[in-house]
Design a binder for these strands. Structure first.
Ligand SMILES: [Mn+2]
Ligand SMILES: [Mn+2]
Ligand SMILES: [Zn+2]
Ligand SMILES: [Zn+2]
Lengths: 156, 156
DNA sequence: CTCCTTATTGAAAATGGTTTCCATTACTAA
DNA sequence: TTAGTAATGGAAACCATTTTCAATAAGGAG
């Protein structure tokens, strides 16, 4: 394990420099927010939350940074069906745990669950291997979401 | 099992009348196309395919019909990350088999796989039961998609 | 069949999340 | 410093989807 990394809130610094990207204040602000926040934020959510502390970071930069982080595999891009993409830190770095989502089609409420995950992950790995071999894909990720009505919405 | 249904291509007629909806030529054209076609079509794909035979069916009606069919649970709405929703017949009616998707993030190619499905479905049912009980959701569906690079795209 | 109610329709305009343009600024290496 | 290039933000463009609204047609009652 290389020394010098994972110090303070800058665990991602090396991730950028290695690819020729620059670690700017805007990128750091966004990454920092994603690391400390728990929800599923849209680009505009993020823009507004950092705008007080970083009034000079524009919405365009937020979009561009999110795209970059997504391409680098550092964040996940989620679609809960409400017309805007939402983001969360990918597992691996930071204490992000592997989880899946349960989405209410009535009110768009989202539950993260980690129960039942163990068996799912085990089967997933197996399926991934099978798919890679049969279809010659290099699999990089998956999305598992259940849809339904929450208690509040199922009572009409 | 009521007689009179499932005759000809009109197996869905009763599905509409029971809910107070009217079976129009546009709706029938769209449903018929979805039944006979195999791909994952966008609203505009559908609009263009039926436009030769039904020039008087507008794009707006296609969108509205797809929303209705989705709400009735007759079709699935899919997001492969290319900015437009895609649709396919839900399983149940017609010979639609339960399957999941493997999406290439390089070229957006989509593979439908039914291998490995048996064990997945079994675990899914179990997980659904657990989630319904724990989170008091009434689960109506799920999305499982793997992402990666196809053989053509992984070779840079 | 005819009439009536109202669900449905299409064309055009509006919406809204996301991208693109482009001139300007901020890094970085030599 | 200086050159080369990555990054930025504000405005404009993009484009899938939705809304508006006057016109139309499905289907039940009679
Ligand atoms: Mn989550
Ligand atoms: Mn499919
Ligand atoms: Zn709900
Ligand atoms: Zn590909």
């Amino acid at each position: 394990m290389p020394r010098g990394h994972c110090r303070g809130q800058g665990w991602w610094r090396g991730r950028f420099h290695g690819c020729g990207y620059r670690l700017t204040s805007g990128r750091e602000a966004i990454l920092s927010l994603l690391s400390s926040s728990k929800g599923h934020m849209s680009a505009e959510d993020i823009y507004m939350k950092i705008h007080t502390a970083y009034p000079n970071v524009g919405l365009t930069t937020v979009y561009r940074t999110l795209e970059l982080l997504f391409d680098l595999g550092m964040i996940c891009k989620l679609d809960f069906g409400d017309g805007r993409a939402r983001y969360e830190l990918a597992e691996g770095a930071q204490g992000a745990r592997h989880h899946h989502h349960l989405v209410c089609t009535g009110c768009n409420r989202v539950v993260e669950y980690t129960d039942f995950i163990d068996k799912e992950v085990e089967l997933l790995k197996e399926t991934e291997r099978g798919l890679e071999e049969k279809y010659h894909f290099k699999i990089t990720g998956h999305v598992i979401q259940f849809y339904g009505l929450c208690d509040r919405c199922s009572g009409k």
